[in-house]
Design a protein around this nucleic acid. Structure first.
Lengths: 128, 128, 128, 128
DNA sequence: GTGGTCTAGACCACT
DNA sequence: GTGGTCTAGACCACA
């Protein structure tokens, strides 16, 4: 499904969260898809089940997945991941900070715009 | 100088790092400016000197400041904060991830571009 | 594992760094080996855990070990300790300085070459 | 005479020591040459006189210079800098450690030998 | 005065 | 159990 990088400073559960989030956002995992069980995934990643458990809880809290007791864990449809004002604000703040740092490091506006255009093209959506 | 949020999930020293980094990037602290001494800042923030020192050491590793034992701590000139490839790559990766998440949440390209324009205008530089 | 010299001018954490670095370089500690936990080593050396942790953090910055919070600390494989140009340059500079000093003190080229041959033989590798 | 690098982690007095040592070893300063006075040098380097004082004391201890009260400070003739067994041993140990680290980082024997040949040629002496 | 190191001991997050 | 953070307070080296 994905790989962990133990050398990273990120905690393991955080990496699990980020990876699954990316799979959902990229459309590899779609609305109502079933996620592997905690036991399965923990075995596949050779990590402690508690770690996966914690990651699932966090993803549920962030609105990306939901759990039906006895049935399993499923991907939320994007429409349900309400445009949470607080979260959106945090994300924008992060972007703001990171871009400022890149500018400080000497990256030009042009280079940053280029980066963004690539992003838009990757998604290939026309909503602007 | 700035305020700490003790309720934040971020550790104190990390908040100190981020705050000072912002001051440097925003140009409030300029090249060769002297930072408050470890003791001064720890008193001002009512935290332990060790905590401030840890933050300063981290900032030094990141290339934002330098330390002369016995004299004090000073802001590095941006030209010295070499365009560290690894760091730049990490920043771009963060931006990539965050923007994708915003798009997933329903934000439009137009809104994102607007966000960026504001950023560029804030800095008011002509380097593109 | 090794002994500290409390009378040394070197700080304790620095001695820990140097000793572990030598163990890694000499191949006593190999890639992916687990280091003693911070608490274990601090107990063995009868120093404060913070001191050991500081040493471990420094070794991590230098690329010799990596840390997985909650799991432990492990030796990096040499291939990951990227040929850091800055560090290599510093080392060469140190060698340059030291050899010049030996020459100044009257040591002959032959004696220095002999010293180097011993070094190469110790490692017994054929890469030249 | 020489420049200090405040950004260096080395203390200032240590840099003064190293720089003067290099000048002596390189033959820029010769036996019985007079060094600038503490006041002169401290003014030239814009550092505290105590710092230069401390550097001179260290150089005297290491046998590179000597002070004649009321007359000034002078370079020792190399023959006086006795082949101090302890110091020579320390130097060799440093070289040993540094070369091992270079080897560990992936530098080849050939590259190291090359480095050494350059050193010998710089001095252009025939004693081997 | 400055930063740097160290201790003793507490508390938290992650596995 | 692991590492990570923080405090209170001491002592040292450097400028």
């Amino acid at each position: 499904m994905f790989q962990l990088d133990l050398k990273s400073r990120k905690s393991i559960y955080e990496q699990v969260v980020d990876n699954i989030k990316e799979l959902v956002i990229a459309g590899v995992l779609n609305s109502e898809d079933k996620l592997p069980s905690v036991r399965e995934l923990s075995k596949a990643l050779t990590v402690n089940p508690n770690t996966v458990q914690k990651a699932y809880r966090e993803l549920e809290y962030q609105g990306f997945i939901y759990t039906v007791s006895g049935l399993g864990t499923f991907v939320t449809s994007p429409i349900h991941s309400v445009m949470d004002g607080k979260k959106a604000h945090e994300l924008q703040d992060n972007i703001r900070r990171d871009i400022k740092e890149l500018l400080y490091m000497g990256m030009t506006r042009a280079q940053i715009n280029e980066l963004l255009q690539e992003l838009f093209e990757e998604r290939g959506e026309g909503n602007d």
